[in-house]
Design a protein around this nucleic acid. Sequence first.
DNA 1: TAACCATTATTGCGAAACGCAATGAAGCAC
DNA 2: GTGCTTCATTGCGTTTCGCAATAATGGTTA
Lengths: 326, 326
Amino acid sequence: MKHLDLSEANLLEPRLLRLFDALFTTGSVTKAAEKLGQSQPTISIWLARLRKELDDPLFIRSAEGMLPTPRAEALIGTARQALEMLRRLAELRSEFDPATAKRRFVICMTDASHITLLPAILAYVRRAAPGIRIEAAQIGGDTPRMLQSGEADLALGYISDLDAGHFQQALFPQDWVCLANAGHARIRDRITAKDFRREAHVLIRSGTGHQLLADALKEQQIVLDVALELPGFLGLPAIVGTTDLIATLPRHIGETLAHYYGLRVLDCPLAIAGFTVKQYWHARFHHDPASQWLRGVCGELFQQQEVRGLHRSGRTKKRRPRDFPS
Amino acid sequence: MKHLDLSEANLLEPRLLRLFDALFTTGSVTKAAEKLGQSQPTISIWLARLRKELDDPLFIRSAEGMLPTPRAEALIGTARQALEMLRRLAELRSEFDPATAKRRFVICMTDASHITLLPAILAYVRRAAPGIRIEAAQIGGDTPRMLQSGEADLALGYISDLDAGHFQQALFPQDWVCLANAGHARIRDRITAKDFRREAHVLIRSGTGHQLLADALKEQQIVLDVALELPGFLGLPAIVGTTDLIATLPRHIGETLAHYYGLRVLDCPLAIAGFTVKQYWHARFHHDPASQWLRGVCGELFQQQEVRGLHRSGRTKKRRPRDFPS
DNA sequence: TAACCATTATTGCGAAACGCAATGAAGCAC
DNA sequence: GTGCTTCATTGCGTTTCGCAATAATGGTTA
């Protein structure tokens, strides 16, 4: 053993504390052995070690049994306190009871999720965990750092190239749909590729899929007639519902908006890469009961059967990502 | 290992507490290893053990180093308290400062010692340990039990057949002298065996040596003219100083009384077994600093050069009595 | 005083645990 | 993809452990 700071040497091990307590209580090495589940010779050796470490005989043999010395009497109180502290440490459990807990969860998500996911989360939480508050934060380049630091508890959406130290769980896949005015003059039950090129369009310049749509258009050398670009989804339903403009969106947000605003949902004629909406959290919180509960809720609400399971981010080679190290 | 009460299992050893603290502080297994004086692989193994015992990863590797989990943050306070308690236990020293201590010492002794020993003890203690109170108790058959229980701290005198578990230290030897009136009509500078038989005597029916004197008289078939028997020493000087009675006493008490009351000290013509005055204490208190101080004082005051050393009571065979077991 | 009993202390040994050099794996920068 | 730092794992010599067997101790009894 390398050199130790002397003030750090010779702290009593729990078994010696237990011995001290048992011997003080019983006055017998034999009885203490029984109490501690060891043999009598073993306990005699432990006593020798305890005597050496405390530099005192501690207990003296007599007709009445092993009697404590003044030093044993002086130390027993502190020894028992130390034992109690160690027991407390062993017994401390992390628990999270949604019915009674009071705390705030910060969930990073896109604007679209405010419409597609947040209402269901909120409804669930208000019913099952009245003391819980939800805060939505913008998903973006800062999201991984926020997850690691604990500023954010969860991220919902699609994050490419997430670095190590995070877990992710697939919720549901996304392909693409077109929205049109229910009373559109030319587009009835389906939209052809020719229609798609001819009609005027409204685009959303934000959100996860925006870049995927742009990539697909470029790749297929299609130039759309973009009559309107919006920074978010706020005015979109009103625009599509009162004009003949076409909107191309991920299915989930598209079907949701169509449902609420009486719009028509059409299969998108353009081949656009799909993606999977996932939930992400940092490995620090993997075992945290509160974190486990929250992502359990989201899993229950949004996960489809065919995407069950979870993944650890980052490169992995031979071995599967571990629940935790060692 | 035999079956243990499950609630007693898995208390953290001090080295794991130290690791927890060091890792929380440094955020690095390598730095924690340096701090704890172990190699990095060793500390990594300890961390694995800590993780298993607390059922949590505790620290997650990141670019910023090893970051604590919520469970680590929840437990670190209690872990540090436990460490502090163990350090306090290790650092607790028994000390006794005569200049400041306030307590009572009970010393068992004979009546004679009230005259021969107690004044010197009292004078010393009042000067060197003003907060100390001395209580004299009667030495007798109950003395060993009182020493063991702590009711008495020390015994001064001669105890035959003291059982195991006690220490003893010789102070001074005792032989016998005769006291006579300084103006005695017939006894001048010496008393012959003939004088001894002819003269009238005063006897003390108590004290350590009384039985030894009786044994010697019986053994030598001498019948003394006992004009007076006293239960104690209280009236003895007045009797011897105003009559022609002879008193036969152990030398120390004899010379002390002669000095105070102007009596004549004569070598005793009768062969009486001598004995050694000792101090006795129980093994429970052997290392107690307060007990050590008190018997150091008595040793300093009363011990003569030729009787230095100490003995453990009770039968011993092959090995010398141990300072303490093991 | 010797024998006996219960309890504590010690010895010798097979088994278990430990610490670390060497090396693999992980995370990140270039 | 390479290189660097740090954490995790492996294999092995060394140390420590628990206990059966037994010695020693303290006290009682005949």
